Simulated assay, not measured.
Amino acid sequence: MTTTEPRADRFVRELAELKIPDPAAGRAALWLRLGGTLMVLALVLCVSAYLLAHSTTDPLEQRDAITLGLCGVGAGVVGGALFLRYSLTGFLRFWLARQSYDLDALAERLIDAQKGRG
């Protein structure tokens, strides 16, 4: 363990050595935004379907509104799954790298303690 290198710099260097992709780069941000957009679109579809179904007595228009509402529910489920998957991926990737770094530091301290006693 080098004492001249700050801990944060060493952590960044080791992340680069592990070749862990940056979670902010690439398509992950696009999928995250798409998931959020789908959730907002789902709310708009469901509210418009509710208003459309309750503003008429024609059963054909009400059935169209039910179909529109079901599409909104489907978009909400897909958008929520995309958003959850890509937001958790970024967090868990960092957490795993941090755990790896902390375990490495613990192992080095234990080895140094064993050398000091032996």
Results as ranks from 00 to 15, higher is better:
1 M>W: 03
1 M>G: 14
1 M>F: 05
2 T>A: 15
3 T>Y: 03
4 T>P: 01
5 E>Y: 04
5 E>F: 14
6 P>I: 09
7 R>Q: 09
7 R>V: 10
7 R>Y: 00
7 R>S: 06
10 R>Y: 13
11 F>I: 12
12 V>Q: 08
13 R>P: 00
16 A>H: 09
17 E>W: 07
17 E>L: 14
17 E>I: 10
18 L>S: 04
19 K>I: 04
20 I>H: 01
21 P>H: 05
21 P>M: 02
21 P>R: 02
21 P>A: 04
21 P>V: 01
21 P>W: 07
21 P>L: 01
22 D>H: 02
23 P>Y: 01
23 P>I: 00
23 P>M: 02
24 A>Y: 07
25 A>H: 12
26 G>I: 05
26 G>Q: 04
26 G>E: 02
26 G>W: 00
27 R>T: 06
29 A>M: 11
29 A>K: 04
30 L>H: 07
30 L>T: 07
30 L>Y: 11
31 W>N: 06
35 G>N: 01
35 G>A: 02
37 T>S: 04
37 T>Q: 01
38 L>R: 00
38 L>W: 00
39 M>H: 02
39 M>V: 14
41 L>H: 01
41 L>F: 07
41 L>Y: 02
43 L>M: 11
43 L>G: 14
43 L>T: 15
44 V>A: 12
45 L>N: 03
46 C>N: 08
47 V>M: 12
47 V>Q: 14
48 S>I: 03
48 S>N: 10
48 S>W: 09
49 A>F: 02
49 A>W: 00
50 Y>H: 10
50 Y>W: 13
51 L>G: 09
52 L>C: 12
52 L>S: 12
52 L>M: 14
52 L>V: 10
54 H>K: 10
54 H>Y: 13
55 S>D: 15
57 T>R: 13
59 P>V: 15
60 L>H: 06
60 L>A: 09
60 L>Y: 07
61 E>T: 14
61 E>C: 15
62 Q>D: 11
62 Q>E: 11
67 T>Q: 12
67 T>C: 08
67 T>K: 11
67 T>G: 12
68 L>K: 02
71 C>F: 08
73 V>F: 06
73 V>E: 01
76 G>H: 07
76 G>N: 06
77 V>Q: 04
77 V>F: 10
78 V>K: 00
79 G>V: 12
80 G>L: 04
81 A>K: 03
81 A>F: 06
81 A>D: 04
82 L>Q: 03
82 L>F: 12
85 R>K: 14
87 S>C: 09
87 S>A: 10
87 S>L: 05
88 L>V: 07
88 L>P: 00
89 T>W: 05
89 T>S: 08
89 T>R: 02
90 G>S: 05
92 L>Q: 08
93 R>W: 01
93 R>C: 02
93 R>S: 03
93 R>P: 00
94 F>G: 02
95 W>G: 04
95 W>M: 08
95 W>V: 08
97 A>C: 12
97 A>K: 06
97 A>I: 11
98 R>F: 15
99 Q>G: 13
100 S>N: 11
101 Y>G: 04
101 Y>T: 09
101 Y>K: 07
101 Y>W: 09
102 D>G: 13
102 D>E: 12
103 L>R: 15
104 D>A: 13
104 D>C: 10
105 A>T: 10
106 L>R: 08
106 L>D: 15
106 L>P: 07
107 A>K: 00
109 R>I: 15
109 R>F: 15
110 L>I: 15
111 I>Q: 08
112 D>H: 06
113 A>C: 05
115 K>E: 10
115 K>V: 13
117 R>S: 13
